[in-house]
């Protein structure tokens, strides 16, 4: 029994199959794209001003109270921000990949965590530390990186013959993706049941955004809010997509359709509610077959030349 479980576990997390062939190149490009998105999301983020906030407003999250962390000075925060952004650039380029990944992960946990220590836990950046942690622990720097170029010049090769190293990072980030959206769907069902779909909730959410924040960029949100059928359709679609998201782990079709559906839902939030969940965008990059796109791109480029 135990050996059966161990066999299933190993086969799921480590064995390449037709839907996910072992590909250091795919992992390398995914790293570069995901970290570029994280960098883009935070290029203008300034953590320095948090250093001026009075301790009376500090309500630390569990991670910070557990470690006994307090609000650092503005100078410390600006230095840490600079190191964080430099580590992200280095990680994106694949230079000293393991070290820069470890620094990028640790500082993302600290800086993005600190933002949540003032009365409100925001969810927009939850995925960032996980993406950085999984990538930092993987061998994502063996291809499509400065490290691999440097090694090649020295006549060495960084790519490992062991294909298992290039499977688990994808599987784990797919699992995380599935859990994040399943959690959101499950929270809605357990808190409100079918009322979330059949009541006026969706309409009221759309109205509240246009009333309070004035962030709704157009009248489309209010148009949908005025149609009970459309509201019900979007509410049911949201619950269906979110609760079905763990299927990405077991079905090739689900890996094609569900991320696309959730990405479209995010675009809908931007248009209808006027806010962005950009912190989750890096997760989508792990569903894209970058190695195939790269090879085809290279072939087309060669033909043109």
């Amino acid at each position: 029994m135990a050996s059966n479980i161990s066999q299933i576990w190993n086969s799921f997390w480590y064995e390449p199959n037709a839907s996910l062939a072992s590909s250091p190149l795919r992992l390398g490009i995914s790293r570069a794209v995901a970290v570029s998105i994280i960098l883009w999301n935070h290029i203008g983020t300034n953590f320095e001003s948090m250093g001026t906030i009075d301790p009376s407003m500090y309500i630390p999250i569990g991670l910070f109270s557990g470690l006994g962390l307090s609000i650092p000075s503005s100078t410390t925060l600006s230095v840490l921000t600079l190191i964080w952004k430099l580590s992200l650039v280095s990680f994106c380029l694949g230079f000293k990949t393991r070290l820069s990944g470890a620094i990028a992960f640790t500082l993302s946990l600290y800086l993005l965590g600190l933002v949540n220590c003032f009365g409100k836990v925001f969810h927009r950046d939850n995925a960032t530390p996980f993406v950085l942690l999984v990538l930092a622990m993987s061998n994502c720097g063996t291809r499509f990186s400065l490290d691999s170029l440097i090694a090649r010049r020295k006549g060495e090769s960084l790519s490992q013959s062991n294909p298992t190293e290039y499977i688990w990072p994808f599987r784990l980030l797919w699992a995380y993706f599935g859990l994040v959206f399943f959690a959101a769907g499950y929270a809605k069902i357990s808190a409100s049941g079918m009322q979330w779909i059949v009541s006026e909730h969706m309409s009221r959410v759309l109205i509240s955004h246009s009333l309070n924040w004035g962030t709704t960029p157009n009248e489309l949100g209010l148009f949908i809010a005025s149609s009970p059928m459309l509201c019900m359709f979007f509410a049911a679609g949201t619950i269906l997509l979110e609760t079905a998201s763990p299927l990405v782990l077991v079905s090739v079709w689900a890996r094609r359709l569900i991320p696309l559906g959730i990405f479209s839902m995010f675009m809908g939030f931007e248009v209808l509610l006027g806010f962005s969940l950009h912190g989750f965008y890096p997760l989508f990059t792990f569903f894209v077959p970058w190695d195939i796109i790269y090879s085809k791109g290279l072939k087309v480029a060669n033909e043109i030349i």
Binding site: G62, G113, H123, N126, V180, A183, K188
Partner: peptide, 11 residues
């Protein structure tokens, strides 16, 4: 328990 969450937004 940030960065873990049950993502209860709008639930």
């Amino acid at each position: 328990s940030w960065p873990f969450s049950h993502f209860p937004m709008y639930a």
